[in-house]
Amino acid sequence: MFEALINAIVDGDEDDAAAAVEELLADGIAAVTIINDGLIAAMNKVGELFREGELFVPEVMLAANITAEQIEILKPYLGAEQPVCLAKVVIGTVKGDLHDIGKNLVSLMLANSGFNVINLGMDVPPEEFCRVVRDEGVQIVAMSALLTTTMPMMAEVIKQLQAEGLREQVKVIIGGAPVSAEYAERIGADGYSPDAAGAVALCKQLIKE
């Protein structure tokens, strides 16, 4: 039933995707079902193909943008029934670091895979991560650093989460060019991913635990 929609998104065809959504609505399919089984399923497929090297970064971004547009279109049709929210994630590039390309890609992929994402942008101080964890009830903290000099700031965020007694209630994941699984372990993070699709898989795995 959702094949046409999924294919349109994977192919990056905006018009076909819009037409498929329209058709599904006309057939009486609930908006929430179209989101869960159509749009999110499509982004899962996109993530998978990206990991396999079949799709490339601009194609993932196009698919994510089409998906986001269609979610906006479907929002007015959503009644009491809301689409699945796998978990609430706060994401940001750590203090002193102004790189956001990879981080934004992860944010896009997570948002379109059923996560509720709070994107804090770049140059985010530890206090800001802690504040959001405290006030917004997030389950996952995702941090990015692209510089060897800002990498230690990720450890600092974890330290502050601990100091404020917030560490136990969240999973912490990290990414960025100089970062590694080994570094994640060293600073007491719960996971590391080398790419955006991996980050989605990692988040899904962590919320199961």
């Binding site: 490339f56 970064v57 601009p58 971004m61 390309i101 934004n104 890609l105």
Partner: peptide
Amino acid sequence: VQPVATNQ
């Protein structure tokens, strides 16, 4: 120089 993949 920034990636043309994310910003054409």
